[in-house]
C-alpha cells in the first residue's frame, strides 16, 4: 500500500466517522415515520414559517455583511490608524466567543429595547457572521496589484470608476465565498439566537430553535426532519459556491 492510498483511506474514514455518519443518522432518524411523516413535519405551518424567516433573515444578514465586511476589510488593508492591529484581532472575536455568550451580551446590552424581536435576531446573526466576508476579502485586497489602479487612473478613470471596474471585479470571488459561508452559518445559527429571539412562533422563531423545541417536546422525528432541510440548504449553498469558484 502506498503512502498516498493510506492517507486517502485515513482521510475518508475520518470524514465518514466525524461528518458523514452523524449526518446519515439524522437523515435516517428523520425518515423513522416514513416519507409521509417527514413531509408532514417539514410542511407544518410553523416549520414553514420558521424556515422562511430563517432564509430571509440570513439573506439580509449576508447582504449587509457583503457591504460592511468589504468596507471593514478595505479599511483594515488600505488605511493606517492607531490600534489597527487591535481592531484586526477583534474581527475574529465572534469566532472565538461561545455564541450563547454573544446572545447574553446582546440581551444585556439592548434588553427590552429589541429583545424578542426580529431586529434582535438580525443583530445576533450579524455579530456571529461578521468575520466571514472580512476574512475572505482581506487577503485578496492585500495582494491586489496597486499598479492596476494607477494604470486605470492614468487611463482616465475616476476613483469610483476604478473601484467599480477594476477593484470590485477582482474582489467578487472572495466576496461570494465569504457571503456563502456567512449565509450557511446564519441559516444554522442556534446559540446566539436561542435566548434573544424569544422563540416566538410565526415571528422570531428560526428553524434551528424550532428543531430544538421539537426535541424538547419529544418529537425527535420532526426535529430531525427540519434539521435535514437545514442541512440541504447549507449543502446547496456550499455546492453552489464550489461551482462558482470553478469558473475562471
Amino acid at each position: 500500500m502506498t503512502g498516498g492510498a493510506l492517507g486517502l483511506g485515513v482521510a475518508t474514514m475520518w470524514l465518514s466517522l466525524i461528518v458523514l455518519l452523524p449526518l446519515a443518522a439524522v437523515v435516517a432518524r428523520s425518515l423513522d415515520g416514513g416519507l409521509e411523516a417527514f413531509w408532514d413535519a417539514v410542511s407544518s405551518r410553523q416549520a414553514v414559517a420558521a424556515l422562511r424567516f430563517t432564509l430571509l433573515i440570513s439573506l439580509a444578514v449576508t447582504a449587509i455583511n457583503v457591504v460592511m465586511g468589504t468596507l471593514v476589510a478595505w479599511v483594515l488593508v488600505r488605511d493606517r490608524f492607531r490600534g489597527k492591529r487591535f481592531v484586526n484581532a477583534l474581527i475574529d472575536l465572534p469566532f472565538a466567543l461561545p455564541t450563547i455568550v454573544a446572545g447574553l451580551t446582546l440581551l444585556a446590552l439592548y434588553g427590552d429595547a429589541i429583545a424578542y424581536t426580529r431586529w434582535a435576531v438580525l443583530l445576533a446573526l450579524l455579530f456571529v457572521t461578521l468575520p466571514f466576508v472580512v476574512r475572505a476579502v482581506q487577503p485578496v485586497l492585500h495582494e491586489l496589484d496597486r499598479e492596476m489602479e494607477e494604470a486605470a487612473h492614468s487611463l482616465g478613470a475616476s476613483a469610483t470608476t476604478t473601484f467599480r471596474r477594476i477593484i470590485l471585479p477582482n474582489l467578487i470571488p472572495a466576496i461570494i465565498s465569504g457571503a456563502a459561508l456567512a449565509f450557511a452559518r446564519a441559516v444554522g445559527e442556534f446559540g446566539s439566537v436561542v435566548l434573544i429571539s424569544g422563540n416566538v412562533p410565526f415571528d422570531t422563531q428560526v428553524t434551528a430553535v424550532y428543531a430544538y423545541k421539537q426535541l424538547e417536546s419529544d418529537n425527535i422525528t420532526g426535529a430531525a426532519a427540519v434539521s435535514v432541510v437545514l442541512l440541504l440548504v447549507s449543502l446547496l449553498v456550499l455546492l453552489g459556491l464550489r461551482l462558482l469558484e470553478r469558473r475562471p
Partner: peptide
C-alpha cells in the same frame, strides 16, 4: 499621459 509599468499592471479580469 500613457503610463507603462514594469510589472505590466494588466487588468487580470
Amino acid at each position: 499621459v500613457g503610463f507603462v509599468f514594469q510589472h505590466y499592471a494588466a487588468f487580470k479580469h
